[in-house]
Simulated assay, not measured.
Amino acid sequence: KLRDDSKATGSGPYKLDSYEAGKEAVFSVNGDYQGSAEIRNSGMTMKFFGDEPALKKAVEDGSVDLAYRGLDSADIASLQSSSIAGDTGIQVVEGTGAEVQHLVFNVEDPVVGNKAVRRAVAYLIDRKAFIRDVYQRTASPLYSIVPAGITGHNTAFFDRYGEGGDKAGAQAALSQAGITDKVSFTLWATPVRFGPGTVAELKAIAKQLNDSGLFDVDVKTTDADQYAKDIEAGKYAVYVRGWVPDYPDPDNFTAPFFGDGNVLGNNYVNKKITDELLPRTAAEAGRAATSTDFEDLQNAVADDVPIIPLWQGKQYVVSRDNINGLEWTLDPSTVFRFWEIQKGVTE
């Protein structure tokens, strides 16, 4: 029976008891739950924090039992080192993630609309360097738009452009297109929306490009609302875009990026992708059978370079050391399984 009011009927392991905007949401176990999950706790309170330092402090002083997302890479690295030393009462649990970040090119821009320019950038970006220096190794280099751990993943950008820092490859790409002067454009970011390290990351990328002697690139930022409006209006040549999947399937890392109304707004058109590959993969019930088509799609993106994959995030949970079961909550599905968590149990 369909409801005829504005309320919802939930069938999950928990029910929402109370919610205070910007502060907390309180959940208890759903006594009517009939699913397969074995619930290992009596409920939870989800607290909301407006900044990373406050969240880190809350974990350290025991105000919260655990933190999932919201901590920047420097804090995670610091807490991980302290945890290894065994002097904080805190543990850091690492798992594979599926969050990704891409550098996006407006292919109608008079500068980066030239495929040779985009390919030259692809030859030069050294992912390992900024993942080490900016993200403290809390992410992994990504060389295709479908991340590792997802059906059909390949390394199309690595296979074509290498691991970065290839000035000779970049120079050859530009020379073949008759480009002899330095190439100038701006890298645009919004400081918070796609992670606190985004601006520092783009500054590192700009330095890599400029140090080659082939580019003259700067970095600018704006707030998230203006950023979205300007992308829609086509004002940016190059900008960053993060993506957290709704489900762990290659379709969710590809279909939203191509065709009319796509989330990138970069004016890229590829009829083979939108008219052949994506419809065919969407119609295939056996997801393993889609691998070849998704590999073809990734290779086409590496050839045209409308976007450059940058990194694939790792997932981290920072908790007090009396919290168990966290290792079962982190995988590329991005579903955090609260019901697996136990408090006050010694393993």
Rank of each mutant, 00 (worst) to 15 (best):
D61H: 08
G62V: 13
S63E: 14
S63H: 06
D65M: 08
A67V: 14
Y68P: 00
R69H: 07
G70C: 03
L71V: 03
L71R: 05
A74C: 00
A74Q: 01
A74I: 00
A74V: 00
D75T: 10
D75W: 00
I76W: 03
I76T: 02
S78H: 08
S78I: 02
L79S: 01
Q80W: 02
Q80E: 15
Q80R: 11
Q80A: 10
S81Q: 10
S81H: 01
S83C: 09
S83G: 15
I84G: 03
I84N: 10
I84W: 02
A85G: 12
G86P: 10
G86T: 09
D87R: 05
T88P: 03
T88F: 06
T88M: 11
G89P: 08
Q91Y: 06
V92W: 10
E94K: 15
T96N: 13
T96I: 08
T96C: 02
G97C: 10
A98R: 07
A98F: 04
A98G: 10
A98N: 10
E99Y: 12
Q101I: 11
H102T: 08
L103Q: 11
L103F: 05
L103I: 11
V104L: 07
N106H: 09
N106Y: 08
V107G: 05
V107Q: 04
V107P: 07
E108T: 05
D109R: 06
D109P: 08
D109S: 15
P110L: 03
P110S: 12
V111Y: 12
V112I: 15
G113E: 03
